[in-house]
Computed example of a mutant assay.
Amino acid sequence: MSLLSSMELFVAVANAKGFRRAAETLDMPNSTLSRRISELEKEIGVRLFHRSTRKVELTETGQAYFRRCESIVREARLAHESLQELAEHPTGTLRVSMPVDLAISYLAPSLKAFSAQYPQIDFEMDLTPRRVDLVADGFDCAIRIGTPPPTPSTLIARQVGLLPRHLFASPEYLRGAPPLEHPNDLVNHQCIIPFPVGGRAQWTLSSHKKTVTVDVGGRYATNNIGMCRKLASLGLGVAISAGPEAAGELERDHLQRVLPEWDFAPVPVYAIIESRLIPSRVRLFIDFVQASLRGYSAPL
């Protein structure tokens, strides 16, 4: 990169037929430009310019070098400009793995606007919680809920969201259930467990500076948040949920929030990529995910 930069400076001096005019065009000190050209001559072992107090001329060797350098610098500029244009108008297929609940509830509603802004990007979305090998499976990135497992040094996890979690139940369930005024009362309730742990779990809730951990159980356990919410809306127990789908159920009176003074710790959302050098379509999508989740960070 340093040699290419020096070649660009050499071409500028040759075209300007002088150091002072070239330095003005390049917006750099004349002394710095002269020093860089001297370093280039020393590196390649030949004199490129005849210098005098009246004028600067290319040597015979300098003329031959100029013809080669001019085309190289021109091609480099064209390559740079084409990459900039590609970054501004990204193309290609974006392959991303992400959980179905996150994709449907949080991202799908605003995906249309992203697609309209970048019409040359196509999408392949694998909606699954399974761990994928970004390289072997050919994914550009993976979006995951919860703290990601330790990743190889070749992978980078970037936090793109922090989602609140609350407790919900249907009015039908609450009418026939024991009182629910404190987290400790959950031991007397059917709790819909959001992870397949045999129908038992520990839930930790906080209110201001108080924290309570309670053992809960129930007949239903699932690794799908949407299923937890659906079972709760059918009157089958108390569930953890958040986001736009829960808000919709609240509006339709299918669910109501319980223990509103108590919350779970927010759950982080991460984008996992192979390296920091990623195509513009991937970078733009990760920025889109972060912007989409930002609107759900406030309590319902």
Rank of each mutant, 00 (worst) to 15 (best):
L4N: 11
F66H: 09
C191N: 09
A265I: 09
F49P: 04
R131G: 14
S275A: 11
L33T: 01
S71L: 13
E60W: 12
V56H: 08
P149A: 13
L9C: 07
R54T: 13
A103I: 03
A239D: 06
S6H: 07
I286C: 04
L3W: 07
V73Q: 04
M98K: 02
L284S: 06
F285R: 07
F288H: 04
I286L: 02
L255Q: 00
L163G: 02
R252K: 11
A14I: 01
G62E: 08
E60N: 09
S275R: 08
I192D: 07
T222I: 05
R276K: 12
R144P: 01
R219W: 10
S105W: 12
N188D: 10
A242S: 15
L167T: 01
V46P: 02
L277Q: 15
G295N: 07
H254W: 09
P149F: 06
K230T: 12
L234W: 06
I72P: 00
A142D: 13
G217I: 04
M28L: 14
V160H: 00
K42G: 12
T154L: 09
P152H: 07
P150K: 04
K42A: 15
V160W: 00
L102R: 00
N15P: 06
R229G: 13
R20C: 08
S275W: 06
E41I: 05
R36F: 03
G295Q: 09
C141S: 10
T213G: 01
A22T: 02
E251M: 10
T128D: 14
A142H: 06
R200L: 14
D133Y: 01
S153I: 10
A232M: 07
D263G: 03
Q256D: 08
N224L: 11
H89G: 05
G248Y: 00
T204Y: 02
I143H: 08
V214L: 02
A136G: 01
P152L: 09
H182C: 03
C228H: 07
R144W: 10
A177R: 08
L86D: 15
I145N: 06
L26C: 08
A22Q: 03
S38N: 12
F285Q: 06
A87W: 12
S153W: 12
H50M: 11
R165Y: 07
N184C: 09
R144D: 08
G226T: 10
E88G: 04
R219Y: 02
G199K: 09
S52M: 02
T128E: 11
V135I: 14
S153P: 08
L259W: 05
R158Q: 11
L277N: 15
V282T: 12
